[in-house]
Design a protein around this nucleic acid. Structure first.
Lengths: 295, 295
DNA sequence: ATGGGTGTTGCACATGGTGCAACACGGCAC
DNA sequence: GTGCCGTGTTGCACCATGTGCAACACCCAT
């Protein structure tokens, strides 16, 4: 680790607390003023630090530009895909990834069910907004006025007896989804298809995508599908963590052996390597998919 | 300038373009792999850089956290005040600073008119949303659904004959304001008071506050007040620049002697030191306040 | 004027950063 | 399997670079 760079970077969180003068910085870094000055100058040259009128230093605009550019360059699909594949591997069911865009929710990725009976859907195709689990998740996080605007603008087709009937019911459902952090569609679109989904959070803490597991009744009863919830939630959290660039990815969270990690190596997630037995705290949650796996 | 830090910081914009592997980074920095590795490790330790599954590096979440914390720590009032004072100094009129919060627009700073006839207002007091220039500016930048929601929820009191009559007219006005980048209130609140305002942009490019100059008819005719527009706009831009932490603050824009700078030293802006005469291109705009100053 | 508070500069010293060369690892082709 | 790339990683000797000091420049207050 480079000492100089280390010191320079320590300045950033320090300045994030509020503007500071040269020797405040020097003092908190425990270095000579002249050293602090040179570091600040370098940061300044890169626009990460800005000098305000009273000579004190503040974080600079470049920081915002960088953060913004980084989220734009983020490829959700690329990052999420191994996790989706893993989820499909463990459950055997169809897995979807969807985003909200301009009043529509569209699938941007899909891993096909390994069961012979499959649900129909296509990447790029808009989703039935009023009933799909992913749509509920994505709409639930919109700012209140926009959410309401969308809900009121929508039509509420009665695909089935369980379809969301009207805007009021939909808004209530969105509120619940927002509250609980996951969503379902139990035969709301196609009588025989159920679905459970969870939100993916971006670096800004907002929901930026949603994923779901779908399966027809004939393959797995709704109650059984719902037992995948912890798995779906954990997977979604893992993707969120990686999207936000926080935790170390890959297998085994460094601190605990309790939480089974999600994917492992690059494009070949390998959760299956986790021993089937063993003192996992998740026994009840895991709903071991092997017993209901096809073939 | 510190070479090491310089190199390390050069990595950030590089990664902002998209993920990159170790030797791509090394190559673009024109340093040895081992050097690049150490720099990346240091950045990683500070959370500015994140290592994704395929071993490539990406910008990390800390960057967002920092940027966010920085905007929260931004004290608009503190930064804007010298500029407001300067504007008051040059025009003699009342200058306001306002922000939007939870459906309301409130004044957060004010510099009193130097004329004997003053308009009434108070810091912290909510503003008449449907007519005030600052309210128009702040509402105009809200996301469309929220803007519409607010506009429809409002009442439209007829303070005067020129008050905004209804939601439709208000939305149309907001659209124009958004388009032109400034706003007026010509006798919409008090028959005899006119007002011209401009928006302040935060680091995220959104309008985060608005400032305005107000004066009663008896002091200056509406047409004359409107001639302050360039001055108000320039001042607003200067504040925005400083809020975003971009340009070098202080007197004299480095390149041109044509554009009169705005404030100068810390808490004592000293534009007045600019010679009253001299080859400014602004002669028509400046509306030299000294000739109509009180006392 | 005088003094304390800033931010700034030049310089001699040795710390800490550098590139090299060798190693470890994983994938791919044959 | 065996060899070969292309990766990322480590240890080390050298000297460039970052470091702290002391002296200076500046502003403001008393």
């Amino acid at each position: 680790m480079s000492q100089t760079v280390d010191r320079a970077l320590t300045i950033l969180p320090l300045l994030a607390e509020g503007p500071a003068g040269l020797d405040q910085v020097a003092a908190r870094l425990d270095v000579h003023k002249s050293t602090a000055l040179r570091l600040l100058r370098t940061l300044h040259a890169h626009g990460l630090v800005y000098r305000q009128q009273d000579q004190r230093y503040r974080l600079g605009a470049r920081l915002f530009a960088l953060a913004q550019q980084a989220v734009e360059a983020l490829d959700i699909r690329e990052i999420a895909h191994p996790y989706l594949a893993e989820l499909n591997e463990r459950t055997g069911h169809t897995v979807h990834l969807a985003v909200y865009e301009q009043g529509e929710v569209v699938y941007i990725d899909k891993v096909e069910s390994r069961y012979p009976v499959r649900m129909y859907s296509r990447i790029g195709r808009p989703v039935a907004l009023t009933v799909a689990a992913v749509a509920k998740l994505l709409l639930a996080d919109l700012p209140e006025p926009e959410r309401r605007a969308v809900a009121e603008r929508l039509e509420y087709p009665r695909y089935t007896a369980r379809s969301t009937p009207d805007a009021a019911a939909f808004l209530a459902e969105l509120a619940r989804v927002r509250e609980q952090g996951w969503a379902t569609d139990l035969g709301g679109h196609e009588e025989s298809i159920n679905c459970i989904g969870a939100p993916l959070y971006g670096p800004d803490g907002r929901v930026c995508a949603a994923m779901s597991v779908s399966a027809p009744n004939v393959v797995v009863a709704a109650a059984d599908l719902l037992r995948l919830r912890p798995l779906v939630l954990r997977t979604a959290e893992a993707v969120s963590a990686e999207l936000s660039g926080t935790t170390v990815p890959g297998p085994a969270t460094p601190n605990a052996s309790a939480t089974p990690p999600v994917p492992a190596t690059a494009n070949a997630p390998a959760l299956r390597t986790a021993p089937a037995a063993g003192p996992t705290t998740m026994s009840a949650l895991t709903t071991d998919p092997s017993e209901e796996a096809p073939e």
